[in-house]
Design a protein around this nucleic acid. Structure first.
Lengths: 263, 263
DNA sequence: CGAACTATTG
DNA sequence: CAATAGTTCG
């Protein structure tokens, strides 16, 4: 009867919650697309149409995942977050929806089975075009510690509304120019043997310099807790990709750069 | 070429940042006076002209300090704080300015040298008269734990806008009288052998009773993290001195008392 | 890192 | 007045 049954372990519940809270400041409503082969995928664009968010939660993320028929669940992320927050970290979560669902059922169960919380969340029809995004070749790919990128984005926002990222073979420079002064942070690639997640990697096909809205970068950086590293792919005059890898899946942000005339 | 080069070790960067944040609620703009012999001195008066702040950072605070020609750097403390905050605690800071500078350069370097952050801060012309303050004989000198003074100042502010400090040979009394009631904290001198910074000392030439604005005391107390103790020097009908000693230098506040007719 | 408080905005 | 973002404290 139920078209989607998924049991999620405590570790992943917090990951799902973090994903929702990371996204919900940019997008309020979005469709969760469920299929047996793809798991759950979400694609949404912020109101200003500058930031595209793509979340993918593989079926392998779930202890059990069954989706007899492809489903589109239109969800209010704020409401979903509220429900997910109610699960204590020790609890298992089961999500369920019927074939033509009006509601998403969420059931938290304590391991000891002496506590069950059930929630039903109203679903909504949300217009959205799902874009196919090619895995194009990019001018460069940078991997750095997620917290480091977060600190740069936050710090630089105090100086300017725009952040310029300049990548050369042996460095990546984050540059902000504002009223009170200017600031640059320059990172050089290096490999940390003991803590690989602390490494900074640059793969370069072609040097690139792009400017982004600091506000959007600060929204992106809300996903920092999801992954120890972030991967940034830049191509001249194209949207940049910021990717946070999940245990089994990913949260990707595609951000359109500012062009010279609007800087 | 550069008139001032100073390299600051991580410990002292946080001390400089704390000084700025302590002061910036009272004074937004102020001149940093730099000279080879004196290091960096700052003097500023709050808008109401009741509180005078004197910060002295000796040349010995710096790993290296060179100032070929005396310089006056007009700085916005809010902006300076923003930049100082961007340093991670492990990083070395170098400050630089030219002979007739428009900008102050600040460079953070990671030990591993794979990360460099550079900032340039616009300087401004700020009118200010530097007062010479004599080290006059005072009626009494009190030394007490900084956190204890902070707690008294904060607690008493909830009772009254004014705080009266009464010093006799064997006690110092902090007294607040307000609408909802009155409160006093009385400290007696004592020496703590194990933790000298917990001691309370009173040196008295003449008993004194002065009243201060609680608001100003609460601004002063923001410097608490800079030193384990605070030294208070009081003289009848004169501004009081509140001194926080830095590793090499000091942060002093001179606060005019309220007189009877304005209490 | 989380929580509480403050400041700001609809 | 309520909700939220930023800030500061433990």
């Amino acid at each position: 009867m139920s078209s989607i049954i998924s049991s999620i372990m405590p570790l992943f519940v917090s990951s799902l919650l973090s994903s929702c809270t990371s996204i919900k400041d940019s997008v309020k409503l979005c469709n969760f697309n469920c299929s047996q082969s793809q798991g759950i995928t979400v694609q949404a664009i912020d109101d200003s149409r500058v930031l595209l968010i793509a979340l993918k939660i593989d079926a392998g993320s779930f202890q059990e995942f069954r989706c007899d028929k492809d489903l589109v669940l239109g969800l209010d992320l704020e409401s979903l977050s509220k429900i997910l927050k109610q699960g204590n970290n020790e609890e298992y979560l089961t999500l369920m929806a019927e074939d033509s669902p009006d509601n998403l059922m969420a059931v938290f169960e304590d391991k000891k089975k002496d506590r069950i919380s059930e929630f039903s969340l109203k679903l909504m029809d949300i217009d959205s075009d799902v874009l196919t995004i090619d895995d194009m070749e990019t001018d460069c790919t940078i991997t750095l510690p997620a917290y480091e990128f977060a600190k740069i984005a936050k710090d630089m926002k105090t100086l300017s509304e725009s952040l310029k990222i300049v990548v050369t073979k042996d460095s990546v420079k984050f540059n902000a120019e504002g009223q009170i002064g200017t600031g640059s942070v320059i990172l050089k690639p290096h490999t940390d043997m003991d803590k690989p997640e602390e490494s900074v990697k640059i793969e370069l096909n072609s040097p690139v310099a792009l400017t982004f809205g600091a506000k959007y970068l600060n929204d992106i950086v809300k996903a920092t807790s999801l992954s120890s590293t972030v991967t940034i792919k830049l191509t001249d005059k194209s949207p940049a990709l910021f990717e946070y890898k999940l245990p089994s899946g990913y949260l990707r942000y595609y951000l359109a750069p500012k062009f010279d005339d609007e800087e």
